[in-house]
């Protein structure tokens, strides 16, 4: 779907992107992650031919992204877009559809309803709050039959309810086979929507892959049991244990020589009833911090 090959870009003296190559498969839900100014937005814009790279090429649907036909079915939501203040969502929809060459007002209405802006259809965008404008922009981008959604900070300015609506919308689109490329600092949102991610730091790709595979074990096991105190007493001689605030879950810290399989066997042998046992893995926030700090250490160690 998207093939990014050796893309580099310099703005004046700033090297915004050092050669970056990423392949995003059809139907993937992909996230670009990195600190502010890492080059995520630049990469997204290069993929859409809005910014011209110094070197490298991007293929969209197998065609060079500089060819307008390659963007058929591609929808892009910029981080900052300011619609004319007089334009109502209805007028904006008409303008967008005129250029897309497809018309399905019912689908736009459904998107508006899904994003909670169906009551704003007659209101000029100049009289809307930032969050309301963002909802309208998302509805414009997501309606119809997109094949690829490229969203740059889609939840900017949205309230918690709006963010949940965006997540639901993205999940629905992903389930329909729409490829999504998300650039967001809201890791919770990314975690709940995306299955693959690329990490960018100072214009360099420092890691990418499936989030499930990138997530390492935290060395902590959560056991949901009917008798936390008894299980704790049973395991405490060997493991460091803690009971959560509600008293239903026992948290067990595995040592370097322990393994999850052995702990599970010990819990089974104790004859204390339990309803679940799981090895805790890193959250996306943990992965993000680890990947960023690891590469930072590598950079320091490589300095003369």
């Amino acid at each position: 779907m998207i093939e990014i090959r050796n893309i580099s870009k310099t703005f004046g003296r700033v090297e915004a992107l050092k050669p970056v190559s990423i392949d995003i498969e059809d139907g993937a839900s992909f996230a670009l992650l990195g600190r502010n100014g890492a080059g995520k937005t630049t990469l997204m814009k290069i993929a859409l031919d809005l910014v011209r790279p110094d070197r490298g090429e991007v293929l969209l649907n197998g065609l060079a992204s500089s060819r307008s036909i390659s963007r058929r079915g591609v929808r892009y939501l910029p981080e900052h877009v300011s619609f004319p203040p007089w334009a109502t969502p209805g007028i904006l929809y008409r303008q967008v559809e005129r250029l897309r060459g497809e018309t399905d007002p019912r689908d736009f209405l459904q998107s508006c309803s899904e994003l909670g802006c169906d009551k704003l259809l007659e209101r000029p965008t100049g009289k809307m709050s930032r969050g309301q404008r963002q909802r309208v922009a998302l509805a414009l981008v997501s309606c119809g039959k997109p094949r690829l959604l490229m969203l740059d900070e889609p939840s900017t300015g949205l309230d918690p309810e709006g963010r949940i609506m965006v997540r639901n919308l993205l999940r629905r689109k992903t389930s329909q086979g729409v490829t999504t490329m998300l650039n967001s600092h809201l890791l919770g949102e990314v975690e709940s929507v995306c299955s693959t991610a690329a990490f960018i730091r100072d214009g360099r790709l420092i890691g990418h892959g499936r989030l499930a595979e990138m997530s390492r074990s935290t060395g902590q096991v959560e056991v949901e049991t009917t008798d936390t105190q008894e299980l704790r007493a049973h395991l405490e001689s060997r493991y460091r244990c803690a009971v959560d605030a509600e008293g239903r879950t026992l948290r067990v810290k595995l040592g370097p020589k322990d393994d999850f399989q052995r702990l599970t066997e010990e819990v089974l042998r104790s004859d204390i009833g339990f309803t679940g046992i799981r090895l805790m893995k890193e959250s996306l926030e943990d992965i993000f911090l680890r990947v960023m700090s690891e590469t930072e250490e590598d950079d320091v160690s490589q300095q003369p």
């Binding site: 814009k45 859409l48 031919d49 809005l50 307008s68 036909i69 390659s70 963007r71 058929r72 591609v74 929808r75 892009y76 910029p78 877009v81 967008v96 250029l99 897309r100 490229m150």
Partner: peptide
């Protein structure tokens, strides 16, 4: 940017 991302 919004318009240019369309297939035009």
């Amino acid at each position: 940017s919004f318009w240019a991302a369309l297939p035009i």
